[in-house]
Design a protein around this nucleic acid. Sequence first.
DNA 1: CTGTTAGCGCGTTCAA
DNA 2: TTGAACGCGCTAACAG
Lengths: 337, 337
Amino acid sequence: MPRPPRADRSTRVTIADVAARAGVSLSTVSRALNGNPTVDPALAERVKAAADALDYTASPVARSLVLGRTQTVAVIVPDLGNPTFQAILRGLSHAAAADDYHVLVADSAESVEEERVLAGTTRRRTDGVILCAPRLPQDELDRLVGGLRPVVLINRTSGEVPSVGADYRTALSTELAHLHELGHRRIVFLAGAPGSVANTARLDAIAAFVAEHPDTEVAEIPCGVDFEAGAAAGTAVRASGATAAVAFNDLVAMGLLSAVQADGCRVPDDLSIVGFDDIPFARYTTPPLTTAAVPATELGAQAWARMRELLEGAEPGHPLTVLPELTIRGTTGRART
Amino acid sequence: MPRPPRADRSTRVTIADVAARAGVSLSTVSRALNGNPTVDPALAERVKAAADALDYTASPVARSLVLGRTQTVAVIVPDLGNPTFQAILRGLSHAAAADDYHVLVADSAESVEEERVLAGTTRRRTDGVILCAPRLPQDELDRLVGGLRPVVLINRTSGEVPSVGADYRTALSTELAHLHELGHRRIVFLAGAPGSVANTARLDAIAAFVAEHPDTEVAEIPCGVDFEAGAAAGTAVRASGATAAVAFNDLVAMGLLSAVQADGCRVPDDLSIVGFDDIPFARYTTPPLTTAAVPATELGAQAWARMRELLEGAEPGHPLTVLPELTIRGTTGRART
DNA sequence: CTGTTAGCGCGTTCAA
DNA sequence: TTGAACGCGCTAACAG
């Protein structure tokens, strides 16, 4: 892209204009407008009058340079199309706005390389960066965050870096227990990205559960993380003979639900399905989806709260881990016998 | 929020450090690093070597101040929770990133006042603002955009301001024609926000359609723009005796679909439903939703393209209007007789 | 081709 | 309490 022409600033009103109009020095204007108490009340009034007569507001860029503070934070997400990340961004955005901070968003497109680059470049034009479910391997993540501080991590941890996240492991155990209670003994798990932190946590939960419940079999089916993947897994799920399916997330669950129903399979009579996340649409499927509710919006707000503490120089709070709540709706029922 | 402490910049490497290490002046470093051809190749090499030995990158904030350019644009959306705006943001974000621009997002929370304020404050720290479906009344919008340029409008227009949007009117007519062709003569329209531009466009289309089809009745039911509103309208829709419902958008359609089905109503046998937007979930409802597909991601990309032209000082292209495509899926069928 | 100088628009010492 | 002067980090105009 060709370099755009230099901006025309000739028409912009600066602090000098206000100073001239109020008949004071630049410093006095600066002090008056920033509420510095050492300025004569009457003068301050005159300055403010001049300022809004001229519709003046200090240049954020100039202030950023001198203050070393931009009033902006960066948020890096792996995919802006993912409902969970959208919810996190929304919660974060609202919370930051309430504290008069701005939010720079960047989508890493699930690319580890992009993630690394974006973290660096956005950090330089903001006061801190919030990494949302970064895909970086642990060692690289550990290395990266060092040069990025202040940093807040969502759904990942790294040393003493403040973080917020959901306890996937326990939540998945709860889902399995729910299925077990309904009599399901042959279950399939539609796996997400192999090797990813989120998938590994779920696999751990499954291994632990199976160890404690020898009567139950949980088979893993490589799948994916979106609708299409879930729908595509329909055939394999039915062929498995399982009476229940645990999807990596709600997207997969919905894709599966859609596919098996189109195939004449009744849910939950023939097959029970559980999702994960409780995205906004989960309650509106037919039947409504049983899932583990991750308070994504709240996580976003909490992530901002951590960042804010860091920015204020306060002690970073302990890592926050929320436990997704099992939300039983219509896609789970007693196992067919 | 208390003012954060002044940032510690003592450890940051500046252009002076690079200059010292390379044994040249600051200007030479600047020139070399910016690819200015008037610098001796050998020297340029030495400078670059020094730069990355020091891991130096010019401060974006300082550059912004001197260049009067931030390489950032602001996007204001009414609601980050709306799938359509999410898609627009995604398309915009990707397109801008491809041109090495950053995106500042702000959610106006459907507030006209917030919209006005955010537009102004974000504009000052960016090179331009993109207003996504602004809720401002036309006269206020006209007034606002004047002091904001460069500006790009999505789903609204104002004088000569570049804009992109969808032709709601024609698309809704097409939906009505589809229903009419299936034999529907009693139709209800689940209206969105009264007085909003989007709702008015749909109402216009309905009025025109009814005028041309005296045999058809289209009753308006005040509703809303989300799931809950659609679900809540279920009773009224069924009581109306209509054989088909046109929802303001897909969210409403899905809420309605869910509600009437829970009530034992068969779709499309007892009731046909059409949505609007074709959000990602529309194809996964049961049955899949018939709707008018708005290429939201593409609109976002096009909005960026317009902004980019403006930034480059090029002629702003003509307003772009895309025609949402009728996407017939499973929620529409012949009218029951 | 390179170095010196002057800002970009502000906040903030330091004197007065 | 106020103003003059300096500097944030960088690019660009102007000499040399």
